[in-house]
């Protein structure tokens, strides 16, 4: 199983692709909406790509918590059963 850092980087790349920025521009705690001008559709795209990549389903109610990369990691880790 990939390590914490590898998973974090995978998520960083996925989010960067959707937000149309370079992966190294995404800081762990920068707000997607405030820093990268994400809108509700981008958030849904990120969610959909994560679900497809890791074959999990994340309840839509948790979408609002996915405000930055760190929060995304925590939610995905919980649903994908990653050890922390």
């Amino acid at each position: 199983m990939a390590s914490h850092d590898e998973h974090l980087d995978e998520l960083r790349e996925l989010a960067a692709d959707v937000l149309e920025v370079e992966p190294d521009e995404i800081q762990d705690e920068s707000d997607f909406v405030e820093t990268y001008e994400a809108d509700s559709l981008r958030a849904i795209e990120i969610l959909a790509r994560i679900e497809k990549k890791y074959k999990i389903e994340i309840p839509q109610s948790e979408l609002a918590e996915m405000r930055n990369l760190k929060a995304v990691y925590e939610i995905v880790a919980r649903h994908a059963g990653w050890p922390d």
């Binding site: 509700s40 559709l41 849904i44 969610l47 959909a48 679900e51 839509q60 979408l63």
Partner: peptide, 10 residues
């Protein structure tokens, strides 16, 4: 049809 959420569909 892929993922359908409240207010969006893929």
């Amino acid at each position: 049809l892929g993922r359908v959420l409240d207010g969006a569909a893929l």
